[in-house]
Design a protein around this nucleic acid. Structure first.
Lengths: 136, 136
DNA sequence: CTGTATCCTTAGGGATACTG
DNA sequence: CAGTATCCCTAAGGATACAG
């Protein structure tokens, strides 16, 4: 990966600075989705070519990993890596920011209330959950 | 602004989900830059056309605002709006994340240490500073 | 089910010149 | 100084078909 600069903001943007990558992270992190077809069916209507490319890229930069589903070996299951799980605080801040400024997003009221009341506790709980579910 | 969905993650991505917008926010937020030529001179080497388009867009979505420089009325000065300043926690989390995983970024050691030691205090201090400097 | 491959169209972006 | 306008090329993305 050749970076435009070594600024930390830029480092992050070169990893996931596009309109699709973090939607996959969101699906893995908050929606319990783990399979290709589940990502494909998300509301934003990604195309197969874009989805394939983003999955490949996220794996290449170490944010997600692929493994076979233990229930059905022909089925591939995606997981967040440690690097991916570490995006949790960033994702939560994104949700909070949108919650403040998007008056149309009624969804997630409960989440926002929790985040406002005790953010640290919410992060700890989610972090533990992700670790047990995604790190083998 | 026509959104692909009303998911909060998507709302945020539709605002600044590209490789350039948050670099401008970074310059305003952490580098004290306020003018066109200063953004243009940043390390990532943005082109004039892209810079112009991004400034226009960030203003259109309410993250930055334009005003004339009180020192020199022909000079335009950019400011973060309240909506832009509210991106502070998100930006800080981005920097922390990159600080963990980018071993080449030695810069900002001091910032990272402070963020780890007492994040809330750092945020409060920066937030106050931004409010006094950007909100007239 | 989990993807690739292909085709085609559109959007992003670099370089440069130019304007108030 | 603070941009816009233009040109041109490449990258991104949608649609569809196909493969293991």
């Amino acid at each position: 990966m050749k970076l435009r600069s070594h600024c930390p903001t830029n480092y992050a943007l070169e990893h996931f600075g596009d309109k699709w990558s973090l939607l996959i992270v969101r699906d893995l992190m908050f929606k319990g989705k783990r399979h290709y077809n589940e990502f494909f069916e998300s509301d934003e209507r990604v195309s197969t070519s874009v989805l394939g490319e983003r999955l490949r890229n996220l794996e290449a930069v170490g944010i997600i990993s692929k493994g076979e589903d233990h229930a059905k070996k022909s089925r591939i299951r995606y997981s967040l890596t440690e690097k991916g799980i570490a995006l949790l605080p960033l994702m939560v801040e994104m949700i909070i920011w949108s919650g403040i400024f998007d008056n149309k997003t009624a969804a997630g009221e409960d989440f926002l209330k929790k985040a406002k009341k005790n953010k640290a506790a919410l992060l700890t709980a989610l972090h533990r959950k992700l670790k047990t579910e995604h790190l083998s």
